[in-house]
Design a protein around this nucleic acid. Structure first.
Lengths: 203, 203
DNA sequence: TAGGATGCCTACTGGACGGTATGCGTCCGC
DNA sequence: GCGGACGCATACCGTCCAGTAGGCATCCTA
């Protein structure tokens, strides 16, 4: 058991190091050597836990799923939950290497075709669900197409995140998210619901 | 002169092939061999025109600048021009390999650090300028922060484009842009200006 | 029509990369 | 207290890749 704990620790070290390198360099430019160095592990250890570079990348992408499933809505307002989810995601991007890495791998299409489609779809489904609840609560404008709105929101958040990463190393991500909601909410929710929302980040 | 024309043709063939491969595979995963094959050119020819892979990539990125400088506003409404610019960009993404390739290289940070920053900034400046004109025309809500709005719009368009690429090979890009404006404009422009705008694509 | 420049071709090189083979220490079950 | 599995270390291999060297044809100029 103590032995297994040690194994789990090296596996985790490899996973985190891989996520970091994938995040910084992308899949193709990331080298196993750098992952090895950063994890403080040898090749044999790595290939004992992961059979190939691709399997390692897929394992990193799983980290994203963990984040989604670990998040629970805190408010009774669906739209507020949507906003909060965005900020939770932003914070995870700033702190959790696994989320950072999985995002880059997800955005980088072509390396492996299926998983990132599923990841995108997962986010869109979550957003769509929150929007449906908002509609039932009577918060949304009547004309809003929920599927279209879910696509716009996920896409916009993705892009905001990306431009923030390129321009400011994600330092201003929270501010930019707040800007996004300020512009987006008037076209989405009705005035009476809008008044009850907090656009800024909430603890 | 006839000789120079031939040289120019091979240079262009290399550039287009490189843009395609960079678009499909990304910088690191793109190989010179594939570019060579697709261009129908030998290594010597390529390295006569471009001294390295990186220089080739930078040349592809230039194509984006050509697109920006080649576009001219057609409407007397600044916001309408903003919308139209988005659609022009979308069309270019669907048809022009150089624009496609340069976008992927721009989004893919880390390979070379400076140029994509400039590209982003160029877009944001253009958007900001149009927003300033819109403010002078009295079309915008008074409270709108122009810099923040420009950041949100460029980021959102980037993300919309990306998710459309991953999910639908950019087939639904125009539709998604229309969805974006539908949600975004109410928070940006005043009702009287909103009524005069055409959210859909215009010929 | 000589001769240099332009534009391109082919064969090659050195290095890095992902992955493997094999071996060795350590701990756990019996 | 011992045998086997677990967990890892190291040396190595084949492949592929960006880039180079040097030659050669075609054209432009004089």
């Amino acid at each position: 058991m103590a032995r297994q704990a040690r194994a789990l620790a090296t596996r985790q070290a490899v996973l985190v190091a891989a996520a970091e390198v994938f995040d910084e360099r992308g899949y193709a430019a990331a080298t196993m050597s750098e992952i090895l160095d950063r994890a403080g592990v040898t090749k044999g250890a790595l290939y004992f836990h992961f059979r190939s570079k691709e399997e390692l990348a897929l394992a990193v992408i799983e980290g994203q799923g963990v984040f989604i499933s670990g998040w629970t809505p805190a408010s009774d307002s669906p739209v507020q939950n949507l906003i909060d989810l965005g900020y939770a995601f932003a914070r995870a991007l700033q702190t959790d290497p696994l989320v950072r890495g999985s995002i880059r791998l997800t955005i980088e299409h072509g390396s492996f075709t299926q998983p990132q489609l599923a990841a995108y779809q997962g986010w869109m489904d979550t957003v769509r669900e929150l929007l449906e609840h908002a509609r039932e609560a009577g918060d949304l404008h009547p004309g809003v197409d929920l599927t279209a709105a879910a696509g716009v929101i996920t896409g916009a958040v993705t892009g905001i995140q990306l431009s923030s990463q390129v321009l400011a190393d994600r330092q201003d991500l929270v501010q930019r998210l707040s800007d996004l909601w300020t512009l987006l909410l008037p076209g989405l929710v009705q005035p009476h619901a809008l008044a009850r929302l907090s656009v800024a980040e909430r603890a």
